[in-house]
Design a protein around this nucleic acid. Structure first.
Lengths: 341, 341
DNA sequence: CTGTTAGCGCCTTCAA
DNA sequence: TTGAAGGCGCTAACAG
């Protein structure tokens, strides 16, 4: 008994492999082989060992095992996700891909600081992680981290600037195309794009998708190009007001993010424009708290973050298993239609 | 050279403690003591060993160390944070409290499922985590998890129903009081509370704080009690409209969450009420994306999540060190004044 | 103060 | 097919 009252169940007596071996009447070596389904062990004795292990509730000591430099069944995840938006969906996807229970994830936060990031990576490597997931904050390509050659790395969200590295990024060009397609499907033709900051790859890619899809239909953006600005509601409101009061005759606005789209929505409302009847509005990210209860609820392009995580984890697993599949992949996104468009 | 092109730097030859010892001309044991600042080692030799270690870029083998069943410098963090809001701030706080680099965090997501949670806890214990941070999704007390008695646990956000366990929760009663105090300070007297769901401890506690603080000033809520409903903008809008058009003569509304407060804000705006001139509005959580660009920017009570994480981690550290400090603690929150109140 | 001797629990030769 | 022996890298206990 410990002195701490009622703080938990008793630690069961540690049962080691040699306990199992003794119980099964074999040597430790044989027990080891039996449990690891290794070299030919007589079926009967294997069963006996397994029974003994089960009876004693044997759990192999993780550290003793790792000491003999095998796999650790641990991956490291380094993030700089200041918005707190990507980590969990991606973690969930990763847990799914690995099959629950088998794998553990060491999480570290780099706080968007290269030095901290490298420090954490060193720590993780000293813990012999089997692989590394490096999760970025934007989709802007980022310089690769310095990692031992035998530790596979998958960059998630923000790809590595080195194309030969494994990177998994949402397909923002597709996102732009889908937004346009959705609007065209409901008969819109005069579309404006109120975009985020031009320094963001996401903004550029979405714009590229939008203009490309429009071009495929012989159209172009109202005003000829996307309006780069800030990622915020205020920018959305400002542009929304200008667009709706001008003589542009627009019938749809694409917001560069849900934030922006909400700003647009609010300004249109102020001006008495009906959404979607007069003007349709669509956003990117499908961030529930922004999208579900706006007036009207906002149609948005979902970035499929959990899928992203699953793919990233799967590629990592493959790489750990030796099947390297270098290069960037751009993962699909999809429209979530609500009432604004 | 590996065959994978440019995927990382070469794995340096493993340097072990005995390499260091040899280089320093001492025994392995001495080297160990020297590096761990253990028993009295002559200053000179300690320096020599440290120099050798540095020269060889020695990193102690984590698993060999853990095998001797000392500390693992690892804590487990189990979350059910579906909203994706608490994990990172709390992780940050924990990293701070432990002093960076020294500690690693194994993160697992329970998806709000008791079985999954217990499964993850077992895995974490098999990895000999020094302690466990169990992060909830609400502040409702939750049944304790089953954990070995020698593994300290701190419940964060959602406390354990067992009062003797260590729990760290934001002080929602204080939050309610602070909201009222802030409004009273600016001369408001007729205050309504549009609250979230009654089944949430957070809603109840905030309401309790609000009414208590009002009572201390000889006041009570307009309508006599808080309006429980849903945690959403729509509910805020509905109530906002009712309150503003009725004859209650309110001069301030407290929203049970930033969501709700934003709804209130929007409805007041629709009705031509000026905020804060006619009616002040204040929310809870200080969730940046909701709060910063509303019209006007929303005054809100910040739950201090990073602080919460730091405290939780600190208590965990203390418990690991043997200084158990059982019981719940309620951590302070603070007003972030913007323009709405 | 320093070195020698034993393990920690497991896996892996190698011999039987 | 099985077992004995050695070692992974480190720390702890005891001698010197």
């Amino acid at each position: 008994m410990t002195t701490t009252s009622g703080l938990g169940r008793e630690q069961p007596p540690k049962v080691t492999l040699s306990d199992v071996a003794r119980a099964a009447g074999v040597s430790v070596a044989t027990a080891s082989k039996a449990l690891n389904k290794r070299t030919h062990v007589k079926e009967a004795t294997r069963l006996r060992v397994e029974a003994a292990a089960a009876a004693l509730d044997f759990t192999p000591n993780f550290f003793a095992r790792a000491l003999n430099s095998s796999r650790t069944n641990t991956i490291g995840m380094v993030t700089s996700d200041l918005d707190n938006r990507f980590v969990l969906p991606i973690l969930l996807g990763a847990e799914d891909a690995f099959g629950s229970g088998s794998l553990s994830v060491l999480l570290a936060d780099a706080r968007d600081d290269v030095l901290r990031e490298q420090l954490h990576i060193e720590t993780l490597m000293s813990r012999k992680v089997d692989g590394l997931l490096i999760v970025g904050r934007t989709t802007n390509p980022r310089p690769p981290a310095s990692v031992f050659a035998d530790v596979p790395v998958v960059y998630v969200y923000a790809p590595s600037t080195d194309d030969s590295h494994m990177s998994v990024t949402p397909d923002n060009v597709l996102a732009g195309r889908l937004a346009v397609r959705h609007l065209l499907d409901s008969g819109r033709r005069r579309i404006a794009l109120v975009n985020g900051e031009a320094s963001y790859a996401a903004a550029q890619d979405r714009a590229a998708g939008v203009t490309a899809e429009l071009a495929d239909h012989g159209l172009e953006l109202v005003g000829g190009h996307s309006l780069f600005g800030q990622w915020g509601e205020a920018w959305g409101r400002d542009c929304g007001r200008l667009l709706a009061t001008g003589d542009s005759g627009i019938d749809a606005v694409i917001g560069g993010s849900d934030h922006i789209a909400r700003g647009v929505l609010d300004s249109l409302r102020d001006l008495g424009k009906r959404v979607p009847d007069d003007i349709a509005v669509i956003g990117f990210d499908n961030w529930d708290i922004l999208v579900q209860e706006s007036r009207p609820p906002l149609t948005s392009i979902d970035m499929n973050l959990q899928h992203l995580g699953r793919v990233a984890a799967q590629r990592l697993v493959d790489a750990i298993a030796g099947t390297v599949q270098p290069g960037r992949s751009y993962e699909p996104v999809h429209v979530v239609a609500r009432q604004s468009a």
